[in-house]
């Protein structure tokens, strides 16, 4: 089963540049046109199920605004 992930976008840093939107292979990010960040940008947000936690969005984000989480199975200890 594919692991599930999620992201958190920090509104303090996000400038609504859309680079994460373009880069997300699952097409699960969009700009939130309902809200503005304190700096006046429409922030990125997760819009759908299907995030894999691949962190590609974080790799392209120029403002280090994204925190990426992914499910992890506890590793077996040998």
């Amino acid at each position: 089963m594919a692991l599930k992930g999620t992201i958190e976008v920090n509104h303090k840093y996000c400038k609504g540049c859309s680079l994460c939107v373009e880069a997300c292979p699952q097409n699960v990010i969009a700009l939130d046109m309902e809200h503005l960040t304190p700096k006046g940008y429409h922030p990125a947000m997760l819009i759908d199920e299907g995030c894999t936690g691949c962190a590609i969005c974080a790799v392209v984000c120029p403002d280090a605004a994204i925190t990426v989480y992914r499910e992890s199975r506890k590793k077996k200890t040998k």
Binding site: N10, T67, R70, S72, K74
Partner: peptide, 20 residues
């Protein structure tokens, strides 16, 4: 057991400042 782990977060060498 399934837990959420952080795969990416803002680097510590950064200050909490929005860039210009």
């Amino acid at each position: 057991m399934i837990e959420m782990e952080v795969v990416y977060s803002r680097p510590e060498s950064f200050t909490p400042t929005t860039t210009h």
